[in-house]
Simulated assay, not measured.
Amino acid sequence: MSIRIGDIAPNFHAETTNGPIDFHDWIGSSWVFFFSHPADFTPVCTTEMGRTSQLSDQFEARNVKPIGLSTDTVEEHKTWVLDVNDTQNTTLTFPIVADKDLKVSELYGMIHPNESTTAAVRSVFIIDPDKKVRLTLTYPMNVGRNFDEIIRVIDALQLGDAEKIATPADWRPGGKVIIPPSISNEQAKDIFPQGWDEIRPYLRVTDVNQA
């Protein structure tokens, strides 16, 4: 199954390390960082689970719930979490989906047969409170994710929703933002009273409150 930006994230019921969940009910009114792993007790996955846990305060500040997945059982996940906590100096509390039967992995297109028929690649789905998929990323099994980029894109998505803006290449919080071409100059006067710099008629940059 191919899941595209703007799609409603498919719902599922699954066992996790924090008990059974209905995914849409679990999302509630939060954003979600849903990410998959090839297997428990593997080195790259261990560092990524640990990094997600270490960033728990940053996710919480952005109203984001992390949830992991790998194609192992709840019992295996729980034993692995002890290793994650010990080796990554953290206390992992977010849920990890057990997907031994590959149902969720197949539903979300996480199984790439030319890579593996039984292990999920490193998929990322950023999902908003309306259950819409806002970003997808796929990493190969031997490359760990860039968590700075994951936090950055969540900031960009949330700022864009709040301020009706787009963000330029390599944008970081506090940087200039772009007024979308769909907003006319007349409309922009009300939305951006602080004004803007018009580099081209289609390229207007401004500052917004990014507190």
Rank of each mutant, 00 (worst) to 15 (best):
V153W: 06
K65E: 05
V143E: 14
F59N: 00
D207M: 08
I3K: 06
A188S: 13
E15Y: 13
T93S: 14
S116F: 02
K164D: 11
P43N: 11
I179C: 02
G195M: 08
P113H: 00
T42P: 01
S36A: 12
E186F: 09
P66G: 09
V84W: 01
D207I: 02
V81P: 02
P193G: 11
R4G: 10
A162P: 14
P95M: 04
D57N: 08
A188M: 09
K164M: 15
R145Y: 02
G195K: 10
V153C: 11
V177A: 13
V64E: 08
S123H: 01
T79I: 10
A169Y: 12
I67M: 09
F94T: 01
I126Q: 06
V121P: 01
A211I: 09
W196K: 10
F34H: 03
T93Q: 15
P38E: 05
I165L: 07
R200D: 15
L55H: 01
D207A: 09
Y202K: 13
L203H: 14
S56Y: 12
T71W: 00
T91R: 06
G68R: 00
P38D: 05
Q54A: 11
H112N: 06
V84A: 04
R204I: 06
T79A: 14
Y139K: 07
D86I: 03
D7S: 07
A9T: 02
I154T: 12
P173N: 08
K103W: 06
R172C: 07
M49R: 03
S123V: 04
R145Q: 06
I3E: 01
R145I: 04
T90N: 03
T138S: 11
F125N: 04
P201N: 01
G175C: 10
E163C: 10
L157N: 14
P181D: 11
P173A: 08
A9V: 04
I67F: 04
F35E: 00
D207H: 05
I154M: 13
P140Q: 13
M110D: 03
A39V: 01
K131T: 15
C45P: 06
E75Q: 12
D99L: 00
A98D: 05
A211D: 14
I127W: 05
G144R: 15
V153N: 13
E149P: 02
V177S: 11
L135H: 14
V124Q: 07
L135K: 14
W31K: 08
T16G: 06
A166P: 03
I150H: 05
P43V: 12
T52M: 12
L69I: 10
V208G: 04
